[in-house]
């Protein structure tokens, strides 16, 4: 069962680094989704490990919340793009010192 968890952590780490390095807001969002999916994998794996369905339920809820989050996040990206003509997260950097 270890291998699933290791895979999950590798995917999570890759998602992390993607969030930190990519500048296109949509790609950053994809990396966030990758991290969520990595977590889901761990949940499902542990559900099987322990022999009950709570992990699967947790993964299900994560999916629901992720769906809501994507909807809102993409709407925000749309709004920003509409006003600033850019989808780069670095361009929205006015809130600073």
């Amino acid at each position: 069962m270890n291998e699933y968890v290791v895979l999950s952590s590798i995917l999570f780490t890759i998602g992390c680094v993607g969030v930190l390095t990519r500048r296109n807001a949509i790609v950053v969002f994809m990396c966030v989704e990758l991290m969520l999916n990595a977590c889901n994998l761990a949940f499902v794996a542990f559900a099987r490990q322990h022999g009950n369905l709570d992990g699967q339920i947790a993964a299900f809820f994560v999916m629901v919340v992720a769906a809501a989050e994507v909807v809102i996040g993409l709407a925000i990206i749309m709004t920003i793009f509409r006003t600033r003509r850019s989808a780069s997260v670095d361009d929205a950097s006015l809130l600073k010192y």
Binding site: V19, L20, V89, D90, A92, S93, L94, L95, K96, Y97
Partner: peptide
């Protein structure tokens, strides 16, 4: 110290990590 607040979300995310 305020130079740390450079406005880039990714920079903040790095501190978070």
């Amino acid at each position: 110290l305020r130079r740390v607040q450079n406005g880039y979300v990714r920079s903040y995310a790095l501190s978070l990590l």
